[in-house]
Write a protein that binds this DNA or RNA. Structure first.
Ligand SMILES: [Mn+2]
Ligand SMILES: [Mn+2]
Ligand SMILES: [Zn+2]
Ligand SMILES: [Zn+2]
Lengths: 138, 138
DNA sequence: AGGATAATGCAACAATATTGCAAATGAAAA
DNA sequence: TTTTCATTTGCAATATTGTTGCATTATCCT
C-alpha cells in the first residue's frame, strides 16, 4: 500500500511528501466517498490548512482526484480512475448525494443522457447527480 | 407585469416589498438564466447585501426560485415553474452551464436517466447539468 | 553529499454567507 | 383612516471557504 501511494504520486509527476501521502491514504480509505476540506482537516488534525488547499488543487490538476459538485458549501473531491492524467480527466461517472447525511459517492454508471439544448449551444459533457437517501439513512 | 409580481408574492404567502419586487423583476428579465448574489448586487446597486441573501433564501423556501448547482463559487438561483410551492418543488429540468462565460440556464428537458445505485440506497430525484458553450461563445 | 527546484507554513487578504438586534414597514383590524 | 403588530429591513459582528506572497524547509537528481 505504501508503494501504491508513492508510486501513484511519482506516476503523476509529484514529489512524495508526508502531507500528500496522508491525504492520498485518506482518499483510499474513504472508499469512493467524496471528501471536502473540512472533513480532511478533521481526519488530519495536524495538517496545515493552506497546504491542504494546495494539495487538493494540485491533485485535481494532476489527475489524482476530481471535483464532485453536489451543492454543498465546500468543494468535494474523490479519487480518479487510473486513466486520468494531468492532460485529461475521464470522470464521466454519476454521483450519489445523500440528502440526509450529506455523504457523496462516485457511482459506476456513466451519464449518457442526451438533452435538447437551444440552437447554437454546444454540449461538451454532462454531469449527473442522483439525490436520495443512502443505506445508513434508510 | 406589476400585478404578476405582487400577485406571485401574495400567492406564496409573502409581503410585497420594494426589494422583493425588484429581485423578482430581475429574475423575470433574466429569461431562464440563473443569477447569483454578486450579479444581483450589480443589477440592484442600492440593495442591501444581507437583505438580498435573506430574500433569496426566503424565495427558495417558498417555491419562487430554486438553487442551480453548476460548480460556480456563489450559489445560483433561477425562477421556479408555477407548480412549485412552499411544500414541494418540481424542478426536475436539466440545466446548461457555459464553460466559457459561466452563464447557466434552465432547459426544458427533464432528466429521466435511470441510474444503478448500491443496495439500500434510495433515489428521490436526479439533477443533470450539461456543460458546453452557449450561442454567444461559439 | 551538494544544489536546483518544489513544497511547506505562516500571515495577510478576499469572497461568500449567517446571526443578532433595533428600527422601519406592510397589511390586517379597528 | 388610523391603529396595531408581526414581518422585514439595515447595520454590525462573525463565520466559513478559499487565495496569494514570501521566507524557510524538504525532496530528489546528479
Ligand atoms: Mn479524474
Ligand atoms: Mn422550484
Ligand atoms: Zn446518508
Ligand atoms: Zn456562454
Amino acid at each position: 500500500m505504501e508503494h501504491r501511494i508513492s508510486d501513484l504520486l511519482k506516476k503523476h509527476g509529484l514529489r512524495s511528501t508526508t502531507m500528500r501521502e496522508e491525504v492520498l491514504r485518506t482518499f483510499f480509505a474513504a472508499n469512493k466517498r467524496a471528501l471536502d476540506h473540512p472533513e480532511l482537516e478533521r481526519r488530519l488534525p495536524h495538517a496545515d490548512r493552506i497546504t491542504l488547499y494546495r494539495t487538493l488543487k494540485t491533485f485535481a490538476e494532476k489527475g489524482l482526484i476530481h471535483e464532485v459538485v453536489d451543492g454543498g458549501l465546500a468543494t468535494k473531491y474523490a479519487l480518479c480512475p487510473d486513466s486520468c492524467t494531468e492532460h485529461q480527466h475521464h470522470d464521466e461517472h454519476a454521483h450519489f448525494h445523500c440528502q440526509d447525511c450529506g455523504k457523496t459517492i462516485c457511482l459506476e454508471a456513466t451519464a449518457t443522457a442526451t438533452v435538447q439544448v437551444p440552437t447554437g449551444f454546444r454540449v461538451k459533457q454532462t454531469h449527473l447527480v442522483v439525490e436520495g437517501s443512502c443505506d445508513e439513512c434508510f
